[in-house]
Nucleic acid binder design. Structure first.
Length: 775
DNA sequence: CTTTCTATGCTTTTT
DNA sequence: GCATAGAAAG
């Protein structure tokens, strides 16, 4: 197969340019993944490069998986030698092998935002920092920025000599790092920092990776931070074959430390760099592209480019002005319904985008009412849910009891009568004797905790007993044992039945994921590609995999559902029909960006808008609401300036109505008779609109409040679980297979069912949780 | 030690 | 408006 087949001139050139630094400025939808895939194939097939020598770095696991499968299809045999991974998982892989050289144990655990906060809280307490003046999250933000910029504790301390206000922050930075080290843990930022540190301090390690990764490709380069830039530079430092792909107009992660200069200055840093622009868009209609171009052209300091398409004009952009967020949600739901019945679209053809996660709730409620299947991407990551984190903390403790955060999390979950007083005593004992928290537990009788010693002993024995279970090697089995022996399900203090059910479903989902992992890893060799690697337990690898998944990674393209997500999450995706909601000053662009002195913030919002618009293939719909609840208060916003930046002629006016912009004004004035002078809705400063006129639809709010928690991503089954089997019936279980029901006992919250499985033996489980099927 | 009540603050955006 | 954290009561 010809690797150049179907490529345009610029794409082909990008594929052919394999030596030296290359910057591909790839506009949205310009086929960059295709170029990267073909380029990889070209390297292997035409240039005789060993797949082993190629590294491709992407932003999300989902993007990595997609690139992997496309490369596999194109290259076939041998493609598995290519490293395709995210920055973070690449770093983990390297650190698992070599981090002992920095004084960490290779079995380090990875802390998420939640764990970070726990640690920082402790740090603040020990340093007696007033968290009213300096909240933990502010310290954590500073720490994260230091790390993004590769500023070490020592350097930060030097800086703090000049700036008195930084003193507490820097003191906390130091103690935070020391605590992490003691816990043998790294946070997300550390993964990058420590890898850079490793490369800088161990030239022979760096050298081995330089020789391995002779050809490097980095996707979404505009979103790299300084640490990532340094990492890539180090790796490419010898062979210099570095190809970066990105679009400065799609740089939307500045808040997270992304340094747009990395892409803007690429040509200056790599003097002999070749630059190729991909401007032909294969995704959207010209109308959509014109809108995107018009909006983004208001930004300064960008690399000039202009997308074009040969797909034709397409239909006009739709614009809807709504009274409030409920009307807006109705509009979205109705549009989807109508479009589906008229054009026979699938649910998966639609995406609804918004600026902040908080906006998803109302949309979700309307989707539930209408029965349209949907998935909310983002929000609370699956692995960040309380019950999941609890169980993972058990697994971590079983795997590596050095992680104090995990141990403390579960020591009294479910309730064992071990309270704060006891924990404090143990903490002090551990600190005084330089022990880990778990080691202190083992010596509880010496720590002067009185009667609690017995309970602690039982807890230690529980963990030790579960650790025995490890040898059997199945994570799913281990999880079952944990649930069984701790009585976790019975001990859950859920607010209500729906909550309980949601959590049970999440737990089941975790077991399913574990079972899938077990299956994939059956008999897998733990030794990796270099000799001398210590074999790591299945459990460790499971925990590692789970630590680095984003919510977007879990979305299944085969599901026929409408996707609801933030504009950020939508990056890299495309849909035939896209709704961008909440197009209001103060929402999008957000309040912070409007207030900020820094004009760059508004430009970032604009780029975000550009990203949103360019997700649409055929149809784009923008909507805004006159009144919206923000944090329990009704706010009145003007329509977003981004709407005004789109030329009127691109809006739909097929029905003989006034064109888009005029329509806004008309509706704004007409919607509320009492609204006084019919101000044009643009350029109305929020301050002028502070006084509410008319109530913002109290009825609607009441109606939805009763709906409450909706299990995300789960089918919209309703009603309580009913048991359709009786004692003596044959049933099947998703994991244990078939068996015979021995007894059914009504428990506190649910039926407790005992089943004698044909292969898995006798098991006791809760009916609502086990989901047994009658045969 | 646990439960219940009250106050606070949160909203950008995520690997 | 909601979730969380901390205080107070049991």
């Amino acid at each position: 197969m010809d690797v150049f087949e179907g490529l345009n001139k610029e794409q082909a050139e990008a594929v052919r340019t394999v030596n030296g630094p290359l910057l591909i400025l790839a506009g949205a939808g310009s086929g960059k993944t295709r170029v990267l895939t073909c380029r990889t194939a070209y390297l292997i097939k035409e240039c005789g490069v060993n797949p082993f020598n190629i590294l491709a770095i992407t932003f999300t696991n989902k993007a990595a998986a997609e690139m992997r499968s496309r490369i596999d299809n194109m290259v076939g045999f041998g493609s598995e030698g290519i490293w395709v991974s995210t920055f973070h998982s690449m770093c983990v892989r390297i650190l698992r092998r070599y981090i002992d050289r920095l004084g960490f144990d290779n079995s380090f655990s990875i802390y998420d935002a939640d764990d970070q906060k726990t640690v920082m809280k402790e740090v603040a307490k020990r340093l007696e920092i007033n968290t009213k003046e300096l909240p933990e999250r502010a310290i954590l933000a500073s720490v994260s920025h230091y790390k993004d910029e590769l500023v070490s504790v020592e350097e930060a301390e030097r800086e703090a000599l000049e700036d008195f206000t930084l003193r507490d922050t820097v003191k906390a930075y130091r103690l935070y790092q020391e605590t992490l080290k003691k816990n043998n843990a790294l946070d997300f930022d550390d993964l990058l920092v420590k890898t850079v540190q490793l490369f800088r301090s161990c030239p022979e390690v760096l050298d081995s990776y330089r020789d391995r990764f002779r050809y490097i490709m980095v996707d979404e380069y505009q979103d790299t931070n300084t640490a990532q830039f340094e990492l890539v530079s180090l790796l490419a430092g010898k062979h210099g074959n570095i190809c970066v792909v990105g679009d400065d107009d799609q740089s939307i992660y500045k808040f997270r430390g992304a340094n747009i200069r990395n892409i803007l200055d690429f040509e200056r840093v790599y003097e002999n760099a070749c630059v190729i622009r991909l401007e032909q868009n294969y995704r959207s209609t010209q109308n959509i592209l014109d809108a995107a171009n018009a909006v983004i052209s208001n930004n300064r300091g960008r690399k000039e480019k202009s997308l074009w398409s040969d797909r034709g004009r397409g239909s006009g952009i739709r614009l809807r002005y709504c009274d409030n967020a409920y009307d807006e949600a109705d509009y979205v739901v109705d549009s989807i319904k109508r479009k589906r019945s008229l054009a026979g679209s699938d649910f998966r053809d639609f995406a609804v985008l918004f600026r902040t996660n908080a906006q998803s709730r109302i949309l979700e409620e309307k989707f539930v009412m209408s029965g349209i299947p949907y998935t909310v991407v983002g929000g609370v990551n699956f692995y960040a849910r309380r019950e999941i984190k609890d169980l993972l903390a058990y697994l971590k403790t079983i795997d590596n009891a050095r992680d104090d955060v995990a141990v403390k999390r579960i020591i009294n979950v479910p309730r064992r009568g071990i309270g704060a007083v006891t924990v404090n005593k143990l903490e002090k004992y551990a600190l005084d004797n330089s022990l880990t928290f778990f080691e202190a537990l083992k010596e509880a009788d010496k720590a002067g905790v009185g009667k609690a010693a017995l309970k602690l002993k039982a807890f230690v024995e529980l963990i030790m007993g579960l650790r025995e279970e490890l040898v059997n090697g199945s994570v799913a089995d281990l999880l079952d044992r944990v649930l069984d022996e701790t009585g976790y399900i019975e001990g859950m203090d859920a607010a209500d039945d729906i909550d309980l059910k949601t959590r049970s479903e999440n737990i089941e989902e975790l077991i399913n994921k574990a079972a899938a992992f077990d299956e994939e890893n059956e008999g897998a060799d733990t030794a990796e590609d270099l000799p001398g690697a210590s074999a790591r337990s299945v459990l460790s690898r499971f925990l590692e995999e789970v630590a680095l998944v984003a919510d977007i990674d879990n979305t299944d393209d085969n599901d026929n559902r409408v996707l609801l997500m933030t504009l950020h999450s939508a990056k890299g995706l495309e849909f035939p029909c896209v709704f961008i909601t909440g197009m209001e000053e103060g929402i999008f662009p957000g309040f912070g960006a409007l207030q900020s002195e820094d004009e760059m913030e508004l430009e970032e919002e604009r780029r975000l808008c550009y990203v949103g618009i360019t997700r649409a293939k055929d149809e784009l719909s923008l909507s805004c609401a006159r009144a919206r609840m923000v944090r329990g208060e009704t706010h009145y916003h003007a329509a977003s300036r981004f709407i005004a930046e789109i030329p009127e002629k691109l809006f739909q006016d097929g029905t003989g109505q006034a064109s888009g912009r005029a329509r806004i004004n008309r509706q704004a004035a007409g919607a509320l008779p009492s609204s006084g002078p019919s101000l044009p809705y643009y350029n109305v400063k929020p301050a002028l609109m502070g006084k509410p006129y008319g109530t913002a639809d109290g009825q609607d709010r009441q109606r939805v409040r009763s709906l409450k928690l909706i299990p995300r991503g789960s089918d919209l089954k309703k009603g309580p679980e009913e048991i359709d089997y009786a004692e003596g019936d044959r049933v099947s279980h998703i994991k244990f297979g078939t068996g015979t029901v021995q007894s059914i006992v009504k428990g506190v919250r649910d039926y407790e069912v005992t089943v004698d499985f044909d292969t898995a033996g006798v098991r006791k489980m809760l009916a609502g949780f086990a989901k047994l099927k009658k045969m």
